[in-house]
Design a protein around this nucleic acid. Structure first.
Lengths: 135, 135
DNA sequence: CGGTATCCGAAAAGATACTG
DNA sequence: CAGTATCTTTTCGGATACCG
């Protein structure tokens, strides 16, 4: 869809739709996918999309399996990538609110299809695994 | 987005949209996302979607950065999950063809939006990072 | 060709303790 | 509360050797 492969000449039997975009762009997109197609990133995007602005501890409660380290790390990276904002309130005890930016929101929407797919195909995958393991 | 409703009563201050789906289903969907939101899985799906049925060595050529080990591993897992088929031809030298199943194809489509997003927002992310690092 | 098996160093994730 | 620092464990990925 987005990748290229700059073949030379061949008439080729198929695979004739996209192709020949700048390999530099290709590499950057792939790097970005590698960054963004991360389990925790996807899950946090989803949490923000569903629950709106949240503070640190609340997020941790909504995602019980994430370690505090990974939560901090993922939030920091998402902030750096422009997905979320981080607002520190000067109160005691401290309060930090995280919220999606429009950019993060748009990515969340792009991932929406994957969530729908997962919910819809859960049982199919389950059965495929059973079939495979039965061999 | 996928999680859902059927809350009981409480008025609550906010966060009144989702909630209270079977936590078992929720956990399974999350596990499946964790499995599927993998860099190499995404990239291999994309390769199959673009280039159709491919044999092992050809895939390796199309994805130069993947190690043989990770390629085998990812293909095996995708086969187990019902995303791809694996056909061994009884010839010498051996020939093994991999191809998307309808299930894999549907996942690939679900991911399509993410690829489009990445290509479209590359520069925005780039600038966000520069801004962040400048602090 | 299309793998599997093994070893190994590097990187990522997890657990725990401490702090402004 | 919202982290950071540190330590341990797991996973990743390259290199190499070997097989049907």
């Amino acid at each position: 869809m987005v990748t290229s492969m700059s073949d030379g000449i061949e008439p080729s039997t198929k695979a004739r739709e996209s192709e020949v975009i700048d390999p530099r762009i290709e590499a950057l997109v792939t790097e970005l996918i590698g960054r963004v197609a991360d389990k925790w990133t996807m899950i946090l995007l989803e949490v923000f999309e569903e629950h709106g602005e949240q503070r640190f501890t609340q997020i941790a409660r909504l995602v019980p399996d994430i370690s505090q380290k990974m939560l901090t790390q993922t939030l920091r990276r998402m902030e750096r990538d422009g997905m979320i904002t981080r607002h520190v309130h000067a109160v005691v005890p401290p309060r930090v609110d995280y919220a999606l930016t429009p950019l993060g929101s748009s990515l969340s929407e792009a991932f929406c299809g994957v969530w729908v797919w997962a919910a819809a195909n859960l049982d199919r995958v389950e059965r495929a695994r059973e079939d495979f393991d039965a061999r």
